[in-house]
Design a protein around this nucleic acid. Structure first.
Lengths: 231, 231
DNA sequence: ACCTGAACACCGTTCAAGT
DNA sequence: ACCTGAACACCGTTCAAGT
């Protein structure tokens, strides 16, 4: 169809783990989670499906490697934050934005076998938690809470991206969802109906950061008897 | 193998959506997320795979119905909580325990098409957020933060349950993970190594509740200028 | 109206055979 | 050492045919 201007010598390079992971990421980004297939991947790499297994043990490892590559890239972007709070916001927003670009990460990052990608985020969050002055015994809880909140939002965003056709934009998606909320049963969903307008008007990133600040306020409030600093 | 003492007349009842969902839940609980197959389900229901499609549009709807059935059951357990905080803890713990019994829910509850199961939890959380006296404009954010934290932990627990063979118990699993943390690269994972002992000793439920309390403290601190109430 | 089960179009993974 | 691609053992889903 269209002529390729990038990576002209693609079919000459030998197969490698890196090229495979790179192609997998491209496939996941363009075709979605269901688009990553050993056959499709093999075609993109101009080889047979069996060849991939010489470099990668299976689909699970491939998915994990792809997720790890993106997350590691996000974490390595060093920031010029002035406070630990600011550093945590930047860090969290980095993960949030990475999921926005690669929605499949949102569902994959939790799914990892207790290893790499999630641990990277945990480590970086934890360092800022330490910088915050949280006592040692409370650091694990604080970093976990932040991580779990981020993973929860990520999973949600991945699910939303999966449910929506590429055509629809953010505004009409939110509008449709809000309207659906307003039409719920008044007895069973009184609260949800009541905040439907807040769903319609909200900004994803702002809302995400507001949640981070809630957790951050909780962390500092519990360990500074002088009371929390306002946002 | 073993003789069945329950549901003796199983093969006489006609097929119904309810029986299909019930059988799907049993299959998911016993054989895991990969165990739910239209063929396995059909065998359990003493029919052909095609018959199921007359009652259910496909696997996605079936998974959603199974998740919704379990979540709805959890939410309907009414509590005798004395404070909104206590009600939220009970509510959250209910979801947590449901995921413990049915690990597949943890990954499925986020995956739903913006509908039922997640919305039930959101609604019940939101009512308690209102009871907490959170101003109207902040209710959506507060309920979302709690929900996302719960979903994050749920996804984590589902992933852990998937990665572990049924034989290993909680203690040795945590011990192995903590040891792995202690052997990480000291430069790259300084924080994680530092809190490995807290991973080893922690109790899942206690830790989960501590995270809830962090968010709860943040919510109340931001809206009560007199400062947060200690836990 | 409801069920049956063979058949279709896929998967991930393996493995003999090649270079 | 690395690649090939046919073959195996599965999937979800459809659909003509039955009752």
């Amino acid at each position: 169809m269209a002529t390729r201007t990038r990576r002209p010598e693609r079919r000459e390079e030998p197969l490698s783990r890196e090229r495979i992971v790179e192609a997998a990421i491209e496939l996941l980004d363009t075709a979605g989670e269901g688009g990553l297939t050993f056959r499709a991947l093999a075609e993109r790499l101009a080889t047979g499906p069996g060849a991939i297994y010489w470099h990668v043990t299976g689909k699970d490892e491939l998915l994990n490697a792809a997720t790890d590559a993106v997350v590691a890239d996000t974490m390595s972007a060093d920031t010029t934050a002035t406070t630990p709070q600011e550093a945590i916001r930047t860090l969290a927003l980095g993960v949030f934005d990475a999921i926005d670009v690669h929605p499949w990460i949102g569902s994959q990052i939790s799914r990892t076998p207790s290893q790499s990608p999630m641990l990277r985020v945990f480590e970086h969050l934890g360092r800022q938690v330490q910088a915050l002055g949280v006592p040692h015994t409370a650091q694990f809880t604080a970093a976990s809470a932040l991580l779990n909140y981020i993973l929860g939002v990520g999973g949600q965003n991945a699910a939303n991206a999966r449910g929506v056709r590429p055509g629809t934009n953010r505004t009409e998606f939110l509008d449709a969802a809000a309207t659906a909320w307003e039409n719920l049963d008044p007895d069973e969903y009184a609260f949800t109906r009541d905040v439907a307008d807040q769903l319609r008007d909200h900004d994803d990133r702002t809302e995400f950061l507001a949640g981070i600040d809630l957790v951050l306020t909780g962390i500092t409030a519990l360990h500074e008897p002088t009371g929390p600093a306002p946002s």
